[in-house]
Nucleic acid binder design. Structure first.
Lengths: 150, 150
DNA sequence: TGATTTAGTTAGCATAGCTAACTATATTCT
DNA sequence: AGAATATAGTTAGCTATGCTAACTAAATCA
């Protein structure tokens, strides 16, 4: 029952930190996921919509890459979002490309869902002391850069 | 574009921290998820298997609850794991219940997959300085307790 | 013993992931 | 210019994963 090194050069210390972080992220999202069902919209659609709302309009291929999903998969996700009026496909100069844009309704729904999740988590943080809270903020701010290196 | 309070009493500061943490967790797992495909086993099966491997044998209902999934869903996930020989259903004293146990093969596969994910993340942490690393560890250790409060 | 509760399964529906194969538009090359 | 190639998306068809409703079987209770 040990972590055996193979082609990795990561130290045992780093592996341990990574393991804790990984496990915590899994359990965190597993809990929050429940709140998403209230939106009546599937997780893949919600996630794709959030890229459009927070990152702005983009093509289907770009969105697929951002979501680490194949184009056919994203094509169907977008069809679902379009059918319910959360996203619009617009033509571009390049006749092959589409520009995907979140509608006002899509933006509203996304914000509501995000608010639910974030509030659930914020309530869980309410019992933290001042020092812990500050440390937690630091961590949250370190992570985005780390993630880009994965 | 503001986070409007509704029935929540969370402060803007907590909401901001929660938002950053939430977003970081999503992006972290989205990246790591890619490595899982190498195992040739789906995410729900992998996650359920990990509960059995790290948490020990349990009933189907308990596993469903741990995974925050309905019993019929877990029933099918377990059928998949059983078909590929990663988990075994065993009878118990209570004739209604089953005891789900990870097989040796299941345990091995899970460890390999986990190792891949954790190594990916550990490599991304390799560029951190000593102080940052220490902070990251502290924070990763704060999270499990927070998660239980969600 | 008969009624109820509990554990799990089966059936049927929707979403979400993939690859392979297709269409349509752009670009490149002669 | 016209043919060949490359690129962007879609369609078709498979598997996996989520749900509810309805069922079976075992345990418990009155």
């Amino acid at each position: 029952m040990t972590l055996v090194k193979q082609k990795s050069e990561a130290s045992p210390e780093l592996l341990e930190i990574a393991d804790k972080l990984h496990s915590a992220a899994i359990h965190l999202l597993r809990r929050l996921r429940v709140r998403d069902r209230e939106s009546g919209i599937g997780p893949a659609q919600l996630s794709a919509l959030s890229v459009l709302v927070f990152g702005g309009p983009r093509s289907l291929g770009e969105l697929a890459e951002a979501e680490q999903v194949r184009p056919p998969t994203m094509s169907r996700i977008v069809s679902g979002l379009e059918r319910t009026g959360l996203v619009k496909r617009e033509a571009t100069e390049d006749g092959r490309r589409v520009r995907l844009v979140a509608t006002a309704k899509g933006t509203k729904i996304l914000w509501e869902g995000r608010k639910r999740r974030v509030e659930s988590l914020a309530n869980a943080l309410a019992s933290l002391g001042e020092a812990e809270r500050r440390r937690l903020r630091e961590l949250a701010e370190m992570l985005p850069e780390i993630v880009t290196k994965i």
